[in-house]
Design a protein around this nucleic acid. Structure first.
Lengths: 164, 164
DNA sequence: ACAGATTGGTTACGCGCATAACTATTATGC
DNA sequence: GCATAATAGTTATGCGCGTAACCAATCTGT
C-alpha cells in the first residue's frame, strides 16, 4: 500500500474517533456523563450485574479504567458496588434505579447520534458498517481473543470469520 | 433507527478507535512517540513549516493540544519553534533534521498499520473506506467548516459533497 | 487614533485511556 | 498442606484529548 492511501485511512480513522467522541461528549454532557461511561452503563443495562473484571473485558478496556469510572458513577449514585459473595477480591457492579433511568436516556441519545452519524449514506452501506468496522478492529486487536466478546456484541450482523 | 443498530454502530466506532489507537501506540513507542504526535510530524513533513494555529486546524484538534505536543517534540529535538517574523503572537513550527528522519520512519510503520487494518477486506471496500469514514466524520463534526481541510487531506478519494 | 473584537499561544484542570507496580485473594499442581 | 501461579482491584503516573481562562498582539470599524 502506498503511503498516501495508508495515511488517508489512518487519518480518516483518527478524525472519526475524535469527532464522534466529541459529538458523543456534547450529547452526554447534559446527563453529567463523559464519553466511555455510557458504554459501561449500557453494558450493565444489557447484561445485568457483573464484577469489574467482566466489565473491563466486555468494554475492551483495562481494569484501572473501570475502577475509575465505576468510582465516579457510584459517587453519582448511578451504580452500586457490593462485595461478591464467593470471592473476596471481587465486587459486583449493578445499576441503581437512577442508573437504569440514566441508561434509558443514554439509549435515546445513542439512537440520535447513530442517525446523525450515518446521514446521507445508502442503507446498504449503513447495514454493512458495523461489520466492516469490527473487521478493522479485529485486525488491529493485539489483545486476548476474549475481547472478541465485545466485538460480537457490538455487531448487529455477523462478523466475517477470521482465521486467527 | 433501532437502539440495537445504533449501539452496534456507535460501539463499533468506539472499539475501532480504542484498538487502532492502541496498535498505533505499540508501533510508535519504539520511536518514542505517542498517538497523536505522529499526525503532527506527518503534517509538517507534508506541508512544511507553519504556525501552531494552522497546525491545530490541520490536525482537527484544539490549540492547547498542539502547544503540549510541540513542546514535547521540541524538547526531543524533532521540531523547532521560532517566532514568526510578521506576527509577534505566533511561532513557526518546523521539522528538524531528526524530525524529518523520524517522519520517514513514521511513514513506514503507517503503511504497515494500514495494511494490517484492512487485511481480508475486498479491495473495493478498502478503496471506499476513507471516503465513507470521512462522511461519517463530517456528519458529526460540529466545528467550523475549516475542519473540512483536515478531511479533504485525509481522503484519497473525493468525499461526497454534503450540503451544509 | 482609539475602542472593541479577534486571534495566537499558554496554563490549569478534568477526562478516559494506557502501563507499571502493588496487595490480597483464589486456583493449581505437587 | 504448601508453594507457586493467576486473578481482582487499586494506586500512581503519563498521555492526548477537551474546556475555561488568561495575556498579548493584531485587526476592524468608527
Amino acid at each position: 500500500m502506498e503511503f498516501e492511501q495508508a495515511d488517508a485511512l489512518n487519518q480518516a480513522i483518527r478524525l472519526l474517533s475524535l469527532r464522534h467522541r466529541a459529538r458523543a461528549a456534547a450529547l452526554l454532557a447534559p446527563l453529567g456523563l463523559h464519553p466511555g461511561q455510557e458504554a459501561l452503563l449500557l453494558e450493565l443495562a444489557r447484561t445485568g450485574p457483573m464484577i469489574q473484571a467482566q466489565l473491563s473485558e466486555a468494554l475492551g478496556c483495562e481494569p484501572p479504567s473501570v475502577t475509575l469510572m465505576t468510582r465516579k458513577l457510584e459517587a453519582g449514585g448511578h451504580i452500586r458496588r457490593t462485595p461478591a459473595p464467593s470471592d473476596k477480591r471481587a465486587s459486583i457492579v449493578e445499576l441503581t434505579d437512577s442508573g437504569k433511568a440514566l441508561a434509558e436516556q443514554v439509549k435515546q441519545l445513542w439512537c440520535a447520534l447513530a442517525e446523525e452519524t450515518v446521514e446521507g449514506l445508502p442503507a446498504e452501506t449503513v447495514a454493512e458498517l458495523p461489520g466492516i468496522l469490527n473487521t478493522l478492529t479485529g485486525n488491529v486487536d493485539t489483545r486476548r481473543p476474549a475481547t472478541q466478546a465485545a466485538l460480537a456484541r457490538s455487531s448487529a450482523v455477523r462478523s466475517p470469520s477470521k482465521a486467527s
